[in-house]
Design a protein around this nucleic acid. Sequence first.
DNA 1: CTGAAAGCGCTAACAG
DNA 2: CTGTTAGCGCTTTCAG
Lengths: 337, 337
Amino acid sequence: MTNIKEVARQAGVSASTVSRVLNAKGYVNEATRQKVLQAVQQTGYRPNVLAKSLKSGRSNTICLMVPSMQNPIFPEMARGVEDVARRSGFTVVLCNTNEDDTVEKAYIDKMKTQWIDGFVVCSSMGRADHIRALRGEGFPLVLVNRFEERDVNRLDIVAVDNFKAAYDAVQYLIGAGHRRIALASGREELYFYRERFRGYCRALEDAGIPLDDALVLRETSGVESFDRLTREVMALPDPPTAVFAASDPKAFVVMHALHDMGLRIPADVSVLGFDNVSLSSMVEPPLSTVAQPLYEMGAVATKNLIHQIRYKEQNGQLPPPVHSVLGVDLIVRRSTR
Amino acid sequence: MTNIKEVARQAGVSASTVSRVLNAKGYVNEATRQKVLQAVQQTGYRPNVLAKSLKSGRSNTICLMVPSMQNPIFPEMARGVEDVARRSGFTVVLCNTNEDDTVEKAYIDKMKTQWIDGFVVCSSMGRADHIRALRGEGFPLVLVNRFEERDVNRLDIVAVDNFKAAYDAVQYLIGAGHRRIALASGREELYFYRERFRGYCRALEDAGIPLDDALVLRETSGVESFDRLTREVMALPDPPTAVFAASDPKAFVVMHALHDMGLRIPADVSVLGFDNVSLSSMVEPPLSTVAQPLYEMGAVATKNLIHQIRYKEQNGQLPPPVHSVLGVDLIVRRSTR
DNA sequence: CTGAAAGCGCTAACAG
DNA sequence: CTGTTAGCGCTTTCAG
């Protein structure tokens, strides 16, 4: 790799002049400018970003922390992150924790010593203090989707209103005449699942339908557990006529179990999902679901993060945190009626 | 951030001694070693990786180039890449090109100036010369899945035997009694799709079944085009009794169209996919498919890449290229008979 | 066994 | 307008 010195030699100038030309900093004679440019051309010189970063303390690199690549919502978010980052000249480092706390912790630790300008994180841990500490340590940070109540007004957040989204979804089901509505609920240590649960409860309550705990399906070991749970709940003397799944993958498992039992969707039981991953339109029947703007969530988070990075560079400190609440869409397809 | 000098000061030694202790290089008195370690503890010192890289010319960072995050095979491969990289102390930079040649080219260009140690690439371009040039320029490189015939023995490749896999798949269909077998084919500029096509043709030929071009469905604009194509082919006077889809997403679209036409799977027509993405077991009916070891492909590619990196460091040049052919599995579920 | 010094490639005062 | 100098944080001869 040819370096700046070599270019300087070829152009018959000093390294600083080359630097000035390339970074358009300070005045430089047009004639020498041309000489430098030509030398750059000839040598095919590319500045060493590493050296630049070492000097400037900025790397134009951000860290994207996701808990899983198997849940399709994360790749979709990642797409939004990558798109915005790339267009703004940032590189993204992919940190997949596989829902493993130890890995997440180790990654944070590693990234801090690395050359990272900021973090977009979907944390796997409910109360991951090492992540929350990041902001205190001066690192730009945006939480996407997964956050805690106490993070509001303390950290930057991008998410949807999970309570309201679930409330509206269940209300839609109730409006369609359902009274026995099961919930395929998610891990309770995650705030957004608690919120969706709360929305479910409130919608029921507001409609004067008593909450029946037998209709609340709680994930035990991975989404596959809903296969058994679905069979069990449908075997009840008074089984549900609709199942609201707190995520699309759960809905798929539920649908599969239902099919397997010979039940028709939506004739016998309606299924409503949450996420709108790309495959939800392709299953049979196409899944009605609450659409989260996944790509946009990643994009907005990254825009915010870059804003923080630039702001910090100019003002020496992080801007006040902003909480972005994006809208959801209830997409009615053919799995509900 | 405290630096090595600060640690040295606290320990009452020189920076070089601290370096020696931390990197276990050269002899160092046990007593001073302890002093250093203690100072490291107290200050919470973390070496600056950037400075290290600048010195060593190695960044322990690899680039993962994928054409899409929407096709679920890539996140799954990415998982394999990330897992192996992380365990070996490497960081992975995510470059998603969205199947855009310009983006891909720009990324390569950018990464070359980033002191990237190596590349794992699923190229979007059939003949991407700037990618192939990488090896010539001394960059460790592994092609996964997407490669050209002429790359064999010139570049490192990880893939399955697409010809044989397709051949076996079609032979299975023929063995089940099918004679009219449609192919939902992929973009022809991709070698592996051509290979799958060739396998389809050969299997037919070997069974004495004439190739009927009307049964070859060619993607026009995205996988959605198979919706129309499926309807058309089923409207033929002599429609197929089985459809072999060159990828699972195509199979999903085909199944969907079939359902929509009121056709039963597999009673009226069998559908066989290719990939075994995680959702293929959840659609209705569960999709029979040729399972590619996606995670493993990413993992093997990364292992190979890291081997190249280490080899190059020791020997000053890249090792001879290796072509890893991984095995596939025909998973028979309930969409075929 | 340990410290001093040089240098990875680049940028930013500071002179001139 | 341009060159010299210093230094980002670290490793690595080379002396001692």
